[in-house]
Design a protein around this nucleic acid. Sequence first.
DNA 1: CAGTCGCGG
Length: 698
Amino acid sequence: MSNLPILQFEDKILATVHENPVVVIIGETGSGKSTQLSQILLRNGYTNSGIIAVTQPRRVAAVSVSRRVAQELDVRLGDEVGYAIRFEDRTSERTRIKYLTDGVLLRESLSDPELKQYSVIILDEAHERSLNTDILMGLMKRLIKLRASNLKVLITSATLDGEKVSDFFSECPILNVPGKLFPVEILYSAEQPKSYIESSLRKAIDIHVNEPEGDILIFMTGQDDIEKLVSRLEEKIQSLEAGSCMDAVVLPLHGSLPPEMQIRVFSPPPKDCRRIIVATNIAETSLTVDGVVYVIDSGYVKQRQYNPSTGMYSLDVVEISRVQANQRAGRAGRTRPGKCYRLYPLAVYQDNLLEATVPEIQRSSLAGSVLYLKSLDLPDIDILKFDFLDAPSSESLQDALKQLFLIDAIDENGTITNIGKTMAELPLEPSLARTLIEANKYDCLPQALTVAAMLSVEGTLLPGRSKHTDKKRKQPPSELPDGSGWGDHIQLLQIYELWDQTDYSTDWVKDNNLQVRGMLFVKNVRKQLCQIMQKFAKGSLDVRRKERRRDRQNDYKNLRKSLCVGYASQLAERMIRHNGYRTVGFKSQLVQVHPSSVLRTDDEGVYPNYVVYHELISTSHPYMRNVCEVEMEWVTPILQKLEKLNVKILSGGSNQPEEITENSDVPKKDVKTAAPADDAKSRIQAARERFLARKGNK
DNA sequence: CAGTCGCGG
């Protein structure tokens, strides 16, 4: 522990921090920056007037790093050293070093914009460019001006591109701290493989037969490919078994794997047995597998992106960035020198790959983030000119503003409303936050809370094992309710209410093919939302009311009405002659109800005239996922508001609102550095086309 | 009929 590279730089770090409000620290994996920086500052008096905050993009990291620091300082976790993540605050009045997720620090700045309790704020792993860390960097830039005398900000990153961050913070100093990685030899393929599954298979077997011991980590794009490759590998290894080489065990590793299967990669392998781990990018940063000496890198990753001009998400396989490629290679050098086999040529690495992954802020819907920034009520803030490290496109910001206007979170001038302020307090997407507020008016807040909590969790419903469900066809073991035909939101409500009636039985969850972890998370979210809504609520927030014979259809009607208000910007109208829909409000999109929906048709096989949807996702077709029937009379006011929006679009709260029509090209002149975002977007598109072209060739 | 990489409040 004591010979961590960073400790040799202690004096240099202290001197630099002493003289500068912001310092960038570049430290590779193994430099000890996450555990040592806070301790160095603690030792040198930086906690005399406040707490040291260290943010992490992931909860597990916040917990595990704080645990290690507490150990090293020989204190109890929660005393001098603690952590705070959603649902769990292990800090006390004695806490001097506090590890927290970037999301939690953002929440804190809502109630205290100057973050006065902190004397030092360290944004760790900033190179990952998580949405929340990016917003925090923007806020820090303002904050250091306000608190020049008593706040130090440190930004740490594992990559070498500290210049950009330094430029952002008015040329602040950059300190480099070496890491403790072993050298990794990089080997390239002569050409792009036709199939990276086949190519990975051959390479893995080649390593297994010819190279000395050491585990193999293979990066694939998704569950499907992983399962295919795992079974091909197992076949092949069995056919090899002639005593010519050691045994091998093949382990899949991805996010939708149940936790007990994920843990398998942390238990040591049987003796004289090589492990071959086939993983998604979960093994890139989130999970570290010890014992890996060989990495096989397909060069691809699956990425979700948002298109602000259509309001649609898509999940695309795209080329990784050079930073990502190097991160993957580094996984081979944690315990001893290793090798990384890239299944693409050096020229592709040099010429085709982006330098860094497009930051999340340029790939997400920004309605929630924009509302959050508006709610901070910072003086002279214009969202369209907010100083981001990498600005999102103006189109994306306009999209967010339009959405917020339609659900009454901001007014025509772009000023946040009282409704908007309440919404910002809720850890929910704006549409669901708005739904809760409306539901309170119509006496169905308990039901809306349940729906919002259910939608906060992906993957509560069965993962859909096709092999199992195929036999049982129409009736999977589930006797789950069907939403009474109204749609998926109502079904989610009914499912949770049933679970509530079993007194939250785990067996019931399993019997119905739901995920235990997911449902427990829903319960936690619901509890948290209740606590926040308590002060506004008109009545009890219990899941089911005690009164006898409540009129459920009436509850559903009120809930649907509330959803219609919350989802005003996610409304679709059925085609006159068939069951397709067109979205209303944005550049109109032709979409279909997702086949998994429980929305029912009428006796003539016709879907409702109007629905609201939770999400547009483009897979094999453009689909609406999670839809709910709404009534014409509730839709009319939305259409009227859209008329207004089409004529006049709000700017960011400055005094010069722009006049543009919905379909005109969005002016970009007012947005600083809009170009890089658009450039990145087109490069993602180009990368995707290259991928599809190659796929089509095989 | 479709099927989702990974994070966060």
